[in-house]
Amino acid sequence: MAFTIIDNCIGCGACTRICPSGCITGEKKELHAIDPALCMECGACGRVCPSGSVENLFGQIIQRVKRPQWEKPRFDHKTCMACTICVEACPTGAIALGDPSSKDPHAYPVLGLEKRCIGCGFCAKECPVAAISMAVPAEALPA
């Protein structure tokens, strides 16, 4: 299963630049294609596509969203068990482990490289104890 690019594609290359698995190919100003064997359905291509050309598994067009308004993970450190599943689940290496506190010697995850986050939500999906929620940062919400 994989996402697909439809004929609306203008060949701008925004999707190839953001795709974390490097599965999109195509010449400039020509129709791009997603390699179904490599696509991991993160949806980042659709969120950056200026021409609304990426379809998800259900045939729906993924809406373009301005990058500051992409959902980002929020970590509930009270529920978190520091198991590092989210760190490994992140396809872009955006999640890092924070420093331990004087009371708690375990290192909990933080969004260390926020700019790398593509809002795929794999961290939240893979967290076994639902300690991660995906939300648009408050400062990015319209007033």
Binding site: A82, C83, T84, P100, P105, H106, A107
Partner: peptide, 10 residues
Amino acid sequence: RVKYHCYSCP
């Protein structure tokens, strides 16, 4: 300095 968790270890 810090506890070390292997992958998926609570």
